[in-house]
Design a protein around this nucleic acid. Sequence first.
DNA 1: TCCTGTATTGTTGTATACAAGTATACCCCT
DNA 2: AGGGGTATACTTGTATACAACAATACAGGA
Lengths: 218, 218
Amino acid sequence: MIDYRSVSLANQVFSVIEKNIINEVYAPGEILSESRLSKELGVSRTPIREALGRLEAEKLIASSANGSVVLGITTQDVEDMFMVKRALEPEAFRRAARSMSEGALEKLKSNLEKQEFYAVKKDSEQLKNLDTEFHDLIYEGSGSMILFSILSPNHHKLLKFRKASLEMSDRIEHSYSEHVAIYHALAERNEDLAAALITEHVNNAYENINENIKREEK
Amino acid sequence: MIDYRSVSLANQVFSVIEKNIINEVYAPGEILSESRLSKELGVSRTPIREALGRLEAEKLIASSANGSVVLGITTQDVEDMFMVKRALEPEAFRRAARSMSEGALEKLKSNLEKQEFYAVKKDSEQLKNLDTEFHDLIYEGSGSMILFSILSPNHHKLLKFRKASLEMSDRIEHSYSEHVAIYHALAERNEDLAAALITEHVNNAYENINENIKREEK
DNA sequence: TCCTGTATTGTTGTATACAAGTATACCCCT
DNA sequence: AGGGGTATACTTGTATACAACAATACAGGA
C-alpha cells in the first residue's frame, strides 16, 4: 500500500462512512461491525476503528459492546443544526471580515469562479463540494478555532440536504449570488454587511431545505 | 489487562491527555510522540492513537508527519467558548425544562446534594467534577444530540478555568445557589426562567474567570 | 574547516495476532 | 415438542510487527 500521508486511509474511511450515513446507505439503527467495514472497504480494522471513533464523537454512531449502531440525522437534528448556524455564523462571518487574510480571500474568489462555472451547468454535485469549501474557508478565516471546530462539522452534516435543495429549485442561482455578495462584504471588510448577508443566506437555505423535507415526508 | 469495556484504555488515555493539555502539563508547542505517550502511560500505541484522533478533532492538538503538536487553550479560546455558551445554552436549558425526564431531574437533585456537601468543605476539585456532571445532565436532558455534542466538550475544556475561579473567591456559594435556582426552574418546567438563570450564570462565571485571567496575566 | 553523503534512529500508518466477552444457534435431554 | 445447556462464531479492545518516510547526527573527503 502506497503511503499517502496527507490522505490517510483512516481519513478516507471516515469520509466514506460519514457520507454513507448522511445519505442513509447505512440506515439509522443498522449495526456496523468493524470486520464488515474492513472487508467492505478493503482495509484493516485499524483505520476503521479510528474513523469510527471520530464518527462517535460527532454523534453519527454510538458504539456498544457488539457493534456501532448508526444514529443518522433526524429532521430535528436539521432544525438544530440550523439553529446553531443562526446563533454562531453571524459572529464567525464578522470576524472573517475583520481578520481574513488576502490569501484566503483569493481562494474564496477562485472558489466563486468555479461555482459560477458549475452553476451554469447545474452540477449540484460539484456545487455541493464548492459550497462546503466556501464555508470552510470563511470559518477558518474567522481565526477562531472554536468556531471552526463547531461550524465546519455542522455544515458538513447538512451536505445531503444542501444537495437535495440545490437539485429541486432555482436555489442554485440564488445561492450563488448570495455567495458573491458575501464575498464582496468580506473583501471590503464590512462586518455588519457580512453578518446581515449570512443571516439571510442561512434563513433562505433553511426555508428551502425545510420545504424539501416536508415534501419528502408526505 | 482486565477488560473494563465501559472505561476503555483509549477513553482513559483521552481523559489523561486532555487534562494534561488543559492544565498545561503538556505545554502549547510541545510535540507528543505516540511512543513517548505509550511509555509514559504504560499502554500500547493503539489506544494512544485513538485518543489523539479525538483530541485532534477537538483542536487540542494538530497532527503532522512527525508528531502531534499541542495547541492548548488560549485566552481568546476562553472568550470564544463563553460566546458559544451565551449563544446556545439558553436554548439548551429551555429544551431541558420542556423535556427532561423525571429520572434525570432526580440525578440533578442528587448531584446538588453532593455540591452542597463539598461547597461547605470548599473542595473545589470535587465541585469542578460535579459542575461538569450537572451541566452534562442538562445538555443531555435537552434531548438535542447536536447541542449536547457542542456544549459538552465546550464546557469540558473550560475545566481548568472553572476550578481556578472556584478557588479564588466566594464564587463557590454563588455558583451553588445559582445551580439550585436552575434546578428548581427545570423541575417546575419554567423554561423562560431557566433560560434567564443560565444566562446570568454564564455571565457571572465569565466575569469571574475573566478577572482571574487578567490577574494572572499581570 | 566546511560540505556532502550515508547510516542510524525515530516518526507515523497499517496490518495482523491475541485475549476476553457475548450473543446465538444448535443439539441433547426430559 | 419444549426447554436448557453447551459450543461456536462473532464482537470489541489491546498489543505487536512491519513498511515507508523524515530528520538528524556523524564520518569522510575535498
